[in-house]
């Protein structure tokens, strides 16, 4: 019934890695044309959540609806179709190193459309212009800086004019200026094209700058999910720890500690 209200609907997601539970009953919704930032420290499960949203992993239980379709039960063909309306910008760019930047951006178009080669090339150049990489299409990923690679990856993610974009740690490894430019670009994409955007990050500044909604994960559970203001003013101690970069006290009993040290 609520299928068309949200671009993403996650319900009671449980995920394991081997016998370790990584996600424990995660539920969240992302509205159309909204920027959702998923935050959390290392090991909070945010990367695992992203891999599930991208259908790279299948959950133990729970459902994930993307653009109204349940991807945990979708057929391969349905997933194939859905993926054409989704763009992903990976942490390290994940550009194919054997192809030039231009060929990388053109790849989804070549694979999914029957457009003429010249049109594909123009489209690829256009996407590179958007991320200020016009004229760089003949270079290989190894010849670019970290920031350029991330922007090129974004251009590739936008190649098919997706309805939804995912970013994995967009500002990781970038200098503050480039990182801020990327944030501006993300906001511009939502404002001009109405793209639904999910950003996974642990960068506070960037998160509060771009987010409409923020979800904070901790140990595989959602600590809080709401607008940027709600999260900022939350009284939950763990959230405030994260927001104020307070180190967390180690809580472990003497017996457990001894047990762990002796490996018994």
């Amino acid at each position: 019934m609520s299928a068309n209200h949200y671009a993403i609907e996650v319900e009671d997601l449980v995920a394991y890695y081997g016998s370790r539970r990584i996600l424990d009953g995660v539920s969240l919704q992302v509205g159309y044309g909204e920027i959702m930032v998923i935050m959390g420290g290392s090991g909070s499960g945010k990367s695992t959540l992203l891999r599930h949203l991208l259908a790279l992993q299948t959950p133990r239980s729970g459902s994930i609806r993307i653009l109204g379709r349940d991807i945990t039960t979708a057929s391969a063909d349905m997933l194939h179709e859905l993926r054409q309306s989704i763009g992903v910008s990976f942490q390290g760019g994940a550009l194919l190193s054997s192809l030039t930047i231009g060929e990388n951006v053109a790849l989804p178009l070549r694979e999914h459309t029957r457009l003429d080669d010249s049109i594909i090339e123009i489209t690829a150049r256009l996407k590179l212009e958007i991320v200020s990489l016009g004229g760089f299409e003949h270079l290989y990923p190894a010849q670019l800086s970290g920031g350029m690679i991330k922007r090129a990856a974004l251009a590739r993610a936008m190649a098919m004019d997706p309805k939804m974009l995912f970013f994995d740690e967009p500002s990781a490894g970038l200098d503050p200026v480039v990182s801020s430019e990327l944030d501006d670009l993300i906001i511009k994409l939502r404002d001009t094209l109405g793209v639904t955007i999910v950003v996974v990050t642990h960068e506070l500044e960037s998160a509060f700058k771009i987010a409409d909604h923020i979800t904070v994960l901790d140990h595989g559970r959602i600590l809080i999910s709401g607008t940027a203001d709600i999260v900022r003013n939350s009284s939950i101690e763990r959230v405030q720890d994260l927001l104020h970069r307070r180190s967390r006290p180690i809580e472990i009993s003497a017996d457990d500690y001894l047990h762990r040290l002796t490996g018994g």
Binding site: L54, L79, H80, L96, S97, L107, P108
Partner: peptide, 18 residues
Amino acid sequence: GTMQANQEIDALRVMGID
């Protein structure tokens, strides 16, 4: 293997390229 380590295989998959 290098493509796998660099998430290029994941990137192909999410682009709908088997």
